[in-house]
Amino acid sequence: MSAGKTVDIELKDIAYSYGPIEALRGVSLSLGAGATGLLGPNGAGKSTLLRILLGFLEPDSGEGRVLGYDIRFERDDIRRRVGYMPEDDCLLPGMDAVTFTSYLGELAGMPRQEAMKRAHDVLFYVGLGEARYRFLETYSAGMKQRLKLAQALVHDPPLLFLDEPTANLDPRGRTDILELIADIAAKKDIRVLISSHILSDIESVCSQAVILNKGRVAALGRLADLRQPNFNLFEMRVKGGSGKFLKDLTGLGCRVEETEDGLLRVFMPVGLDRKKVFRLAAEDRTQIRHFLPSRTSLEDLFAQSVGVEG
């Protein structure tokens, strides 16, 4: 299979209503390799979309294919190849993690002994190796989150749906889970679709993003393209010097704004040689500690896409 070119999720005009409430009103998108962030305000239709992709819901209209299988008629083929990590806490009481994980592997169609073997592997992978014989009821929130990831991985699906994977985690748990997801997404024939409210999480692991708003696709594309750097606007942080530096910058034709937490936003005129800025700093003994062409932040992009002023 040639990775990168295949389209893994393709939807055309998907619409879905819960009674009078229109959750999705014509969603068309196609997603390929890598990790994709699924963003949107509450009620934008993210969960509905995931449920449709899994075949929990049948769209009112429109068609779609996941990994080449029709979402209406080939649900079992899709579910066999998808790992789903639900948003809410879920487990089966009265058993340990190995039983739980291998059981769900078996339900996905793994032979029994294979499921058992693989359960140990994925539990070690998500960092539950030590705790794998403990009863699930005794697990902490962070461990339950890892367990949900383990059960999504057990049958080694080529496509993962992760719904709010870092919800309710503390900063350490969050970075751990994100590192795991990034590691999985780096495998070239595994695709990951992550729905999240935490934009910095999406920024750290996803290469592309879909923003839903009011049941429609508001933005779609590679994060790098969506967030084109603006080479006329630089963010800077400086330290020391006599303050002459800022004045001199204005002298070069730059417009300088300072935000409340000390970040300088410097609008440079077209064609200005950036070296001149460093020359000024050297003359004034000013340290330039931060120098970055400004990009639209994902948050700004999000706000633009869902139609709210910054």
Binding site: R274, F278, A281, Q287, I288, L292, P293
Partner: peptide, 15 residues
């Protein structure tokens, strides 16, 4: 750093 950038004639993209 700034003096070094000037001396080596570097095109700095980000710090």
């Amino acid at each position: 750093l700034p003096a070094l950038v000037v001396e080596l004639d570097l095109e700095i993209e980000e710090i």
